[in-house]
Design a protein around this nucleic acid. Sequence first.
DNA 1: GGAGCATGACCTCACCACAT
DNA 2: ATGTGGTGAGGTCATGCTCC
Length: 501
Amino acid sequence: MRSKPLPNIPNEKPANVRAFCGGVVIGQLVKLTRAQSEARHEVPHRLVKAPKSPTTPERQLERAFARHQFLFESEKLRHCASVPLQPLEVEPKPVITPKGQTGCATVIQYREWSDEWRIRTQVETANNLPPQVDGERITETLSQRGAKKIAESCEYMSLKKGGFKTFVTGTFNEAARARIAANETTIQRELSRCMDAMQKMYQRGWTTDKGERVPGHTEGLSYCWVVEVPKNEQGEDNPHIHMLLGWAVPFAQFTNWASRIEGIWGNGYFHMEKIKDCRCAGAYMAKALGYMTKGQEGSQGKVRGNRYGISEPARAPDWVTVGKKQLHAMGQIIADVYDHITQKYGADYRERKQLNKRLDETPKTAKATRYQIGKRLQAVRDKLSSLPIRCNKYQVILKGESAQRTFLSWALGDSNKPPEWLPELPSELAWEPANTPEAKDGHYWRNLEKAYQHRKRQFQELKRQRHAVTDEVCSWMVEQAERFKDAACSAWEEYAYLEFT
DNA sequence: GGAGCATGACCTCACCACAT
DNA sequence: ATGTGGTGAGGTCATGCTCC
């Protein structure tokens, strides 16, 4: 029986093969061709003339390999029987960071607009300088961060401000394209000029062509735009922008309003479309920017300047740190929760991923199939979003105050049975938040102190050998040490002030 | 996956001047 | 009163590496 092809069976240059098996050198066997082999069988003084089914070199080779395999396996078994196996560490020991450890902490944050709590570990990163940034800013793709900011803005607007209300597609006419190509202007510059004017119109109000006065707004205009530069059929750059506006007007004013804004744009078409379901604005944008969620492969067209923009009122406020505690066991606790969630709901996450992929691969024309996939996808999404928790290896996000309370009291070692979205917590893993780490617990201060101690030792050493140096050098050393101490102290004050006030 | 880090490029904002 | 545009001050963004 041959389960898999034999390795290294030479086809053309068999003489090169030198594999040891059962005392036979395979190369020599293979050297014999079928004709040679048959000739050998036809020796005159043998009773049996050439056999009907001669043992071919291939067959011999197979046998040799089988024998070798057998010997090898039995040798392995013998070895395993005589040498006892080392016990494997099945359950790794929980990692608990000692209290008072420098440079790491548990951070508790809150985001009001989504009513979410985030508990994460924070570690001071290596003090690496970021790369130098200079020259023109040219981007080829929308960054992950940009896509995230846009998605968050849509969510924020939907939850807090009634959502974006108008979807805009703006194009550039030939003259504008030529000016962009000639570096006379940038897309962003054109946009900011337009947004400046629109912002003023929004806040000051305006008069319709029928003489009707439309009052302005006290708050700023919410908007969010993204640039896209696909190639047209002739292979030329065809830049255009997609924009979401938190501004809509009654139907009677719409035409006048839209043509007025198109006038402000002045670079070509500025197509405005009322968003029917304001909570789905994010979907509009995602649809317009198919690539937004599709990783970073390939170029999406070169853009000089920024690739997207979000006005201040439309920006989703960031997380606010409400507490900073000892790291202690929190890193391990988060890792355990992540393990638990991926195990318990793994099937759902996998299904979501699979359905997303299938939806992506299904052509737009197959409406019925797409509808079916979409329906199942929605069901899985709903199921997952009904969980009060989501997490990755380094952070846990909890929806609402009660989930946050449940999580924290569980992490602190509450003996009550945890909800199904949390694992059992071994008692030795209970989190001890202890005292809040201060700036002094960071690497920065520790290093500063170390450096000062080093200088001090250097100086004392020199002082002991004073006879070896001149008074001048000695006083210079004193001055240096003192100067360093002053610099360190003032740097410390500045640092502590920045960090905690 | 998310965030800190430093920095240049370029944008946004508030305000002002001027035209209609 | 409204529209338009200029200006300086201050704000935002992208970038790559690193860590967990």
